[in-house]
Design a protein around this nucleic acid. Sequence first.
DNA 1: TTTTTTGTGTGATAAATATCACAAGTACAA
DNA 2: TTGTACTTGTGATATTTATCACACAAAAAA
Lengths: 187, 187
Amino acid sequence: MQEKLREHIEKIISLTDEEFSFIRAHFTIKNSKKREFLIRKGESVKHCYFVVSGLLKLVYDDESGSQHIVSFAMEDWWETDFLAFHTQTKATMSLQCLEDTDVFCLSLENYQKLCAGLPKMEHFFLKKSNSGHIGSQQRILSFLTSNAKERYDQLLKRYPSLFQRVSKTLLASYLGVSRETLSRLSS
Amino acid sequence: MQEKLREHIEKIISLTDEEFSFIRAHFTIKNSKKREFLIRKGESVKHCYFVVSGLLKLVYDDESGSQHIVSFAMEDWWETDFLAFHTQTKATMSLQCLEDTDVFCLSLENYQKLCAGLPKMEHFFLKKSNSGHIGSQQRILSFLTSNAKERYDQLLKRYPSLFQRVSKTLLASYLGVSRETLSRLSS
DNA sequence: TTTTTTGTGTGATAAATATCACAAGTACAA
DNA sequence: TTGTACTTGTGATATTTATCACACAAAAAA
């Protein structure tokens, strides 16, 4: 499990064994079962998570009770309610396991210590944050330029594995269409 | 004009005069007229821009010829085609002045030198990138949870000044609705 | 100034999508 | 095993939004 984290980081920066030990010491491990919550709306957000295996959904529940999926977090993803985590405010979203999931947990304090103690890691997180930002911008663009059918096809092309792992209902709520419309599109 | 940049950076990290001189040396200044392009689709993206005054639009032109506004860049914003800038690929979007605009320009090379020479700045850019990511996620959320009217009201509330500065047609293309629909919403 | 482009509102209509309702299939727990 | 909850497809209908067309106003260019 440690190796997964190390390999992931070493895609961007190279590390000595000592550096990795230093990094490793800032994380804890958590093994969660399907349906378990890592973050609950309204509670404080203790950690940023690195997904080693499994699958989670980051969801926003609106006033009328419907769910909106901001993001699916799969292997090799960093996920949390970033706003709440960085500003130390209460979560506005929830992070819940869709499968049994193993994660590394990084507290804000350890995140800051890690960046301060090893500037390379600040560089690493900057790269990650940039990719995240670019990814979100692409998703915005897909809302601006594409209808439901096109967004569905783009998702299918980009993350084909998702279609085996999550229900159509969840895909619909990620794409921003009703499950009935999605059902009619895919047939 | 320099002071604007310094004040902006000092909102996040504090600087000595020498540090600021070091930073300043990595930027060039550009004054552009309304309608001028800082980035053109298809060309290479030389800089990341910090907007001192004025207003720009970051637009994506689709195959059918319609424009989609990914972002408005106002005073104190950092803007570029981030994907093209960071990966040194051709621009897929254009950045064009909606008003006469003054910017500081930072090349990728200088961006890297700046981060390497002054780790504080890597920290600064990480904070900026995180806010950008969070902002994009909020925008995604508005597409997921809100209809055109609600998105319009949210934008009006968040950036009231935009409504004096840009045409309804451009607002429509930022919100992802046709100008006719927007016109009917706002009356 | 005159001309041309750009912006805006609004009607009529078409297309996309949501909502409600129901039936049947599948997974999972008691 | 039975039952309960979750999932999926599909019909009927309502709502939202896009598209096309036009008139006119405002702004920029000649």
